[in-house]
């Protein structure tokens, strides 16, 4: 592994709403850090030897970095749209590589088997063709036109619908997904997975949502998303090998999911290998 390429990225380190002056001890890429609020209520993140780390607060979370971020945190324009509900789903720890947590999030094919009767159901297991690209102008991985039949796509859905998804990877351990918004067909619901790398094989996952849904209670929205993520957790903890395998040599198209191939290619291109292992496949 090399940490260098990923060290200048922003990572989620806590919920802004839960900051306190006493601070919470956690870790970022192996380094113990403390996330607290200062006298003015601003977020403050301190590294191992007491050094003050960069901080920004966005999407309900506190973000920090062990290095010197070269650009601002990626933007999610929907976060500023009025009428959306913003949901802090809360942290879940997973004993897996942070990169594997993101890769699993990008994969639609597991829905009927892992999220049975919610995000998928047999016999509707087929993933129709969709488009995947690395958008050079923004340097992000995008998958679009992903269509899938879902028995209960969202709390706001009242039955089975064919849902359309777009997936976006704007940072090595973050993914943003856009999916059909049942009450507002012209808009997308936004569901994110922000992953805090504690170590190469251990991460804290902070899901966050920006939804149009005026009827479901906040607690129900949280529980819906936690249910889904907990179904993934046991799968993630049992993946072998723990680290995400990246092929150092020639890219041979595997049978793997297209988005996953693009994600791995993008990681490799940037040397984003904290949580990966380089192996010929």
């Amino acid at each position: 592994m090399t940490m260098q390429a990923m060290i200048d990225e922003w990572y989620p380190v806590g919920l802004f709403s839960q900051l306190d002056a006493a601070g919470r001890g956690t870790a970022l890429m192996g380094e113990p850090i403390v996330v607290a609020s200062d006298a003015d209520g601003n977020a403050k993140v301190t590294g191992g030897n007491g050094r003050v780390l960069p901080v920004c607060v966005r999407y309900g979370h506190v973000w920090s970095s062990l290095g010197a971020p070269k650009k601002a945190l990626f933007s999610i324009p929907e976060a500023d749209q009025t009428g959306r509900r913003f949901v802090d789903v809360g942290v879940v720890r997973v004993r897996c590589s942070p990169l594997r947590a993101v890769e699993n999030f990008l994969d639609v094919a597991h829905f009927p088997f892992v999220h049975t009767d919610i995000l998928g159901a047999e016999p509707h297991t087929e993933v129709q063709n969709y488009k995947v690209e690395i958008r050079e102008d923004v340097d992000e991985v995008w998958a679009t036109q992903v269509k899938f039949y879902q028995p209960l796509a969202a709390k706001s859905a009242s039955g089975g619908i064919t849902t359309e998804y777009m997936y976006r990877v704007p940072a090595p351990t973050c993914s943003v997904l856009y999916k059909t918004c049942p009450p507002r067909p012209s808009e997308w619901d936004v569901i994110t997975l922000f992953v805090q790398p504690l170590a190469e094989d251990l991460c804290d996952v902070w899901p966050w949502m920006a939804l149009f849904d005026d009827t479901t209670s906040l607690t129900d929205l949280i529980h819906f998303q936690q249910t889904i993520f907990l179904q993934d957790r046991s799968i993630l903890e049992n993946q072998i090998p723990r680290l995400l395998p990246l092929d150092p040599g020639l890219e041979i198209p595997t049978r793997a999911d297209l988005t996953s191939v693009a994600y791995r290619r993008w990681l490799k291109r940037h040397n984003y290998t904290y949580g990966a292992q380089l192996v010929a496949q």
């Binding site: 919920l15 839960q18 802090d88 942290v91 209670s217 607690t219 949280i222 529980h223």
Partner: peptide, 10 residues
């Protein structure tokens, strides 16, 4: 009656 146990500690 759902309780916001986590993260809300309801």
């Amino acid at each position: 009656r759902p309780v916001d146990f986590h993260p809300g500690a309801e």
